[in-house]
Design a protein around this nucleic acid. Sequence first.
DNA 1: CTGAAAGCGCTAACAC
DNA 2: GTGTTAGCGCTTTCAG
Lengths: 345, 345
Amino acid sequence: MARQPTSDAIARPGPPTAHDVARLAGVSQSAVSRSFTPGASVSEKTRQKVLKTAKELGYRPNLIARSLITQRSNLIGVAIPHLGNPFYATLLEALSEDLAEHGYRAMLFPAPMSAFVDPLIEEMLSFRLGGLILVSSSLSSGLAEECLRIGLPVVQVNRVSSRGTVSTIVGDNRGGAAQVAEFLVAGGHERIAYMAGLEASSTNHDREEGFTECLARHGRSLSHRVVANYSAEQARDHARILLARPDRPDALFCANDHMAIAVLSVARAEFGLVPGRDISIVGFDDTRLSAMPEFSLTTFRQPVIEMARDAADVLHRMISAPDAEATRTVLPGELVIRGSARLPG
Amino acid sequence: MARQPTSDAIARPGPPTAHDVARLAGVSQSAVSRSFTPGASVSEKTRQKVLKTAKELGYRPNLIARSLITQRSNLIGVAIPHLGNPFYATLLEALSEDLAEHGYRAMLFPAPMSAFVDPLIEEMLSFRLGGLILVSSSLSSGLAEECLRIGLPVVQVNRVSSRGTVSTIVGDNRGGAAQVAEFLVAGGHERIAYMAGLEASSTNHDREEGFTECLARHGRSLSHRVVANYSAEQARDHARILLARPDRPDALFCANDHMAIAVLSVARAEFGLVPGRDISIVGFDDTRLSAMPEFSLTTFRQPVIEMARDAADVLHRMISAPDAEATRTVLPGELVIRGSARLPG
DNA sequence: CTGAAAGCGCTAACAC
DNA sequence: GTGTTAGCGCTTTCAG
């Protein structure tokens, strides 16, 4: 053992234990434990005595030891991509606050969207967390099964999985993208282009499909299509090429605001284009930036705050009722019309 | 006990334990432990056998149990304010990645800058974390002493504490603010104003003092002073009042970019002012937004990436060498001259 | 209401 | 090299 025997009177390193308090208060160690357990059976007298000496010693119950024996943890693993995208920053903040309201704490796992997340999940599993929230990344079917087997609640946010075994919360990607298509067609645009996000992601898949299918219903199709993987840098690069073309699109739907704002900036600063007049740019998400007069981005709003709240609620419910079914939530959004795209009529 | 006895053959709930693996592999439980400990003394034969059955069973060592006995945790508590401010979002992302490189994971504690953080720290202490990183919030002297006593490494980022007992990492707040003052005076401004952040924060204190002292050296003083508590909303509100005054300032130094950008936006959109010509606006931090042509904010850069890296490094060093002295790091920055403020000469 | 005792899953001496 | 044993700090029966 690394430590001195507990019976030793000399000062040990590290925080005091329930044993230390018990000895000093002249009670049993279980009495100490009970004094810190809300509904437990202790006389008020003992409890006060314990609490007093505990304060003197600076004793605090060791939550790690507790979780080891109670077999549950109030730690939630949160895998989330690049916080430079305000959508994720906002989501994470809301998520951690909502989790806190249920008494949970978030353990952060930075998860590049494009990365293979299985090793990350493996690590999460090693911590015996109370639950997992996966933002924009999904479980391989093998791991999904494993979580199910060991009874670990998982909710995926902003991504649906191939299999129906894990709970998901998403915005209305298809419907939203269709509304954008409708709006752009009504605006009388000639060459409508699409800037894709990460092609392996369900969000991009759904947005692109919703967009192109609606276009098709109007007998239209994409004039251009580029892939910028949800990255602002790649969006800028593609914008420079795309906008320099002689057959430049007069409307560009970007799979998220992060890319749309990068494109809008390049269009204005480097090509002298006036968004909403010379070119229509539309995004998806409605992040904080999009509402600023500098960008005034027309976009489809995802209800990010509710997505976070729902995720925390669903997870909490799954933890409380271990054999609840997996749920799939699609949260409605709305088209927010600002100045970056030409209006119909 | 909540569980069936381990000797029971029926399927228990929950993940398999080292015991389960040991029984199936026909070795002792310690052999299993050793097989998962890098430098341990096991024959390759045993190790392979163990690893094989472990994989079959889906066994993973329980990190919680491990940390209970090894008396150390690779979990780092990170208290950080509002992620809507890109400075913090970037800092958190870098921080969690740098921590991961050292083998640590971040446990997230949302900490409103204005809030009294002692209860939050108390909770952090209950988790027996390996270390604490406090961004823009500081320990009360009582808790600082306690951390010292129990040997818990703490580093404060972007805030200095009154007492010298905890390690700190800050940018050059005084020097940076002085450079801004120098620049504004040289630019020939008549009425120089200051928009304060949170008055209780050391960052605001140092920036304001560095700014006004430099002004004083030039025989100048503040024409106006408002307090917006590092909030974009409050910055907007104050901007509306300030810019409507007949004696409106012709230069405004905001204690961070988050406020400066809000002010800049209002000045342009609501007052028709051209930043850099009609009014000079300067920020502090140099967040991602400031470099965009839409804002082109003149600002003093804080080396956020290095701040994160240093914080992770210092913490790691403190964890490795428990009785190292507290360090105080001041990272240099640089004035980034863009278009939002009139140039000298 | 209270203490003694048995573990949660694991690591680290300690013998052999 | 390997198994046995004693805990880490705590919760939870189980007697009394």
